[in-house]
Design a protein around this nucleic acid. Structure first.
Lengths: 251, 251
DNA sequence: CCGACTTTGTGCGTGCGTTCACAAGTGCCT
DNA sequence: AGGCACTTGTGAACGCACGCACAAAGTCGG
């Protein structure tokens, strides 16, 4: 996992339900699959069908959902809309989270225009950048604010989540200022590990890291193919690229 | 992780060095830290120093590196430049990987302009889009090609990695075509799980998923604070929000 | 009312990943 | 040359997560 900073503190007097991190990471996937099903008018799903739609095993899905409670009816399945509500509540999507995006470069533009945030209860309340040429420009119908006003913006809107989309060199400094201003969760797109005090969560998204991981497996596959060829076995490079297999996907 | 689809088969006659997936996922992070150190003129690092720079524990780092071989000198540390070379080779970054980006929307633009790809041996050979208004436009100094030419482009350039940055509805279809054309690794930015035949790797990057995970922890922190203040207050269930959420989701 | 069928929820075994702790190796200083 | 300080590499213990397989629970048809 990419630095989940689990914490996993014992939690005080409330419900002692500690949901595993691996499960939490999958809940958004289930939620998306469920909403898609709901749009199609489906009102009940089995764990098997939902698992297929989400791309996981059915046993794993059932165990994940069991951590939320015993929603679901034996012999029938889960009621889609009810489950959507429960997962949304568990993830905290029933309340609005205020977000600022810092660094309006290529990626910052894309993030500001990305509809997926607003759809799920995240309100982007400000776009911040240091470059005077960018400040004042309108992006996604919102004016870009000077980075110098970071503290004021965070305090004024009660921002709790900061998105760092700056160059690597500026990331730690921006992060420190966000945290000092009161932000307690940071989503980091800069290719550097951010250091934060305890109690602050950081998640990292790194585009080139993902490509490099793919390259490793790609090289592995190539090496394996070459080794087989060297022995003389003629195994076709793409055996059974069966259209049947490709089409097998539900959908 | 996000479903690494490891396979992890025993590997045929070659070196039986099976590097754990968790380790592979961290190698790019080490590589980045190392190149940063190299730029500063550092020529030797201890596991402790490198671990700090990479944001991991030193024991984990040593165990990770030990899977590559016994580079590193006891009492001294690791030679930076040598280690950069070894990790690059292991990740397959010493060769050029041809990449196509499909879907030149907000995110596709950002990806096309992102310099981190070319720096690490990834050549973006084509940008593809379905929209006639976008086709022909120049993005990052490269003309956008019609999506209809996907198969021709992949075959002509020997593309092995495809980046899917399309809307969710088109993602599976694009993926199928990429795979059929010969792509064996897919980096998926669309918020749907892609189904591919065996032998093809998929990695998923989902922006809103990450935010939702942060929201969960954020809520946890808030709930913990509130629990101290309030006592036996029953939480109103908020049923109205559910239906609104259901309708808005898929973009 | 009963029996056959369907599907959930979960106890358990297994394997992977992380962490600790230490022996083995290396350079430096006297 | 010899001791000392430092760092790597790894054996071993621990904990988490995954998947299997099954009992519990509910539905449906007769």
């Amino acid at each position: 996992m990419s630095t989940p900073r689990t914490a996993s503190f014992a939690l005080t007097g409330g419900g002692a339900r500690g949901i595993p991190d691996a499960t939490v990471a999958r809940l958004p996937v289930y939620l998306r699959a469920l909403t898609t099903l709901a749009e199609r008018g489906v009102d009940t799903v089995s764990s098997q069908a939902l698992a297929d739609a989400a791309g996981v095993g059915s046993a794993k899905l059932r165990k994940d959902l069991s951590h939320l409670g015993s929603y679901g009816t034996r012999g029938v399945g889960y009621e889609v809309e009810f489950l959507v509500h429960q997962i949304s509540r568990e993830l905290g999507l029933t309340q609005d989270w205020r977000v600022v995006i810092v660094g309006i470069g290529n990626l910052g533009h894309a993030l500001a225009n990305y509809g997926g945030f607003a759809q799920r209860g995240f309100s982007v309340v400000a776009l911040l950048d240091e470059d005077p040429d960018v400040v004042g420009e309108r992006v996604a119908g919102m004016p870009v604010t000077a980075a110098a006003d970071l503290e004021a913006v965070v305090a004024e809107h009660g921002v709790s989540i900061g998105v760092v989309a700056t160059p690597a060199a500026a990331a730690q400094d921006v992060c420190d200022r966000l945290v000092a201003a009161g932000v307690t969760s940071v989503l980091n797109f800069a290719p550097v590990p951010l250091h934060v005090p305890d109690g602050v969560d950081v998640r990292k998204v790194d585009l080139s890291t993902e490509l490099q991981i793919l390259a490793f497996h790609e090289q592995r596959k190539a090496a394996r193919g070459a080794a087989i060829a060297a022995v003389g076995r003629a195994e076709p490079d793409r055996p059974a690229r069966g259209t049947a297999l490709v089409k097998e996907v539900l959908r």
